[in-house]
Computed example of a mutant assay.
Amino acid sequence: MLEELVQTALNRELPSRTAALRVLAGEDELVDVIAAAFRVRREFFGRRVKLNTIINLKSGLCPEDCSYCSQRLGSTADILKYSWIEPDEAAQLAGQAVAAGVKRVCLVASGRGPGDRDIRRVEGMIGTIKDEHPRVEVCVCLGLLQDGQAERLRDAGAYAYSHNLNTSEQRYGEICTTHTYRDRVETLQRATRGGLSPCSGAIFGMGESDEEIVDLAFALRELDPDSVPVNFLIPFEGTPLGGRWELTPERCLRILALFRFCFPDVEVRLAGGREIHLRGLQAMALYVANSIFLGDYLTSEGQPGADDLQLIADAGFTVEGLEHPTLPEQRHDLVALRHRGAGSTRRGSS
């Protein structure tokens, strides 16, 4: 079955549902699954690791009620809350990230979706960043898009738009009630039609079954994203999913392997929660995923950037596009400049 999965992926074809479920079910030894996934990863991406980072432009006070999110409506999670940062702050953070080897900077803002004023503000930030770092990919994540907004972001210099499906269609109403699964699909389609590279993935560890994981992977495949972030739930206290610790390192690795088989030539990005759920097996995940986030996430800390770079080197991989990354003297902390006097100054814990 693993050989079938490899050959199907090398042909850029979708695996059978039976084969996909077997990856998750544990019928094959984990090391054999990882080795099979690595054959696919190596064929399309060699031993390169692409680095990404998040710049949280606006944090907290979101009107949506996504159960996993520390910024949700009604959240009592102890996180930073602030309004929009200034363009020069965004550019400074982007500059630190680019020096460390980051190829994609993800500009993220909480909220249901951007209004015209928000789009104008982000257009300015994109311009400032691109003026100083013309080769960096700017990805934007602002929530649900309206008609014409993707085109404006593209014209401002954005490369990609990120909007995760997060969970399967049949479970979506259990996770969020203020918008629908279909709303998310339509935003991704608007971004694609508007000329932005579509980025969409999921969050795991929210009670989903093997069948629902496969449903989601297959649904994402139909949307044809260029990059697929795989997140693992950070169970913030003060949210409905706080305290939910159902993932194991093996479960995470099997999910990653499934996504590699479903997206053989697409950027599979190891994203939020990797440090706390993969723990000592993070290096093994690099044999499946070809992309990771460097530094911190939206409201939780990642591990120091220097540790990530050492992890990559120790596993025998190289940072894509940069031979000698440079980190600041202090910890690579992309929240360090945020946010003077704007609400809480406490950080969420992971």
Rank of each mutant, 00 (worst) to 15 (best):
Thr318Leu: 07
Asn52Gln: 06
Gly111Leu: 09
Phe317Thr: 11
Ser59Pro: 09
Ala313Thr: 12
Glu86Arg: 14
Ala271Trp: 03
Gln146Asp: 14
Cys66Val: 07
Leu322Phe: 06
Ala97Gly: 01
Asp65Tyr: 10
Ser168Asp: 06
Thr299Ser: 00
Glu320His: 07
Gly273Lys: 05
Leu309Met: 10
Asp265His: 12
Gly321Arg: 15
Thr128Ser: 15
Thr318Trp: 02
Leu80Met: 10
Gly207Tyr: 04
Ile203Glu: 01
Ala36Gln: 09
Asp307Cys: 08
Ser344His: 09
Ser59Ile: 10
Ala109Arg: 08
Glu137Trp: 07
Arg171Val: 08
Val185Pro: 01
Phe293Lys: 08
Val214Pro: 08
Arg193Asp: 13
Leu220Val: 05
Gly173Met: 02
Asn290Cys: 04
Ala342Trp: 12
His339Ile: 05
Glu89Trp: 14
Leu144His: 04
Ser110Phe: 09
Ala19Lys: 08
Ala109Asp: 06
Pro235Thr: 11
Met125Ser: 05
Asp307Ile: 03
Ile292Leu: 15
Ala217Leu: 13
Met206Gly: 01
Gly316Phe: 01
Glu275Tyr: 06
Leu327Glu: 11
Leu24Glu: 13
His277Glu: 09
Ala90Arg: 10
Val23Cys: 11
Val49Asn: 02
Phe263Thr: 02
Leu286Asp: 09
Val335Leu: 10
Arg12Leu: 12
Thr248Glu: 11
His339Glu: 04
Ile54Lys: 00
Cys139Trp: 00
Asp65Trp: 07
Arg171Ile: 04
Trp245Gly: 10
Val102Ala: 08
Lys58Phe: 04
Val49Met: 14
Val122Ala: 14
Arg279Glu: 12
Thr345Cys: 06
Ser300Val: 15
Leu327Thr: 15
Trp245Phe: 15
Ala25Ile: 06
Leu281Val: 05
Arg254Val: 07
Pro114Phe: 00
Lys58Tyr: 01
Ala191Met: 05
Leu241Glu: 11
Ile55Trp: 02
Glu13Val: 10
Val138Ile: 15
Leu61Glu: 01
Arg152Thr: 14
Ala156Ser: 09
Gly305Thr: 01
Glu3Asn: 12
Leu298Arg: 03
Gly273Glu: 07
Leu216Thr: 00
Asn11Pro: 00
Val105His: 01
Arg135Trp: 06
Gly115His: 04
Ser291Tyr: 00
Cys141Asn: 14
Gly272Lys: 02
Leu247Asn: 08
Glu174Lys: 08
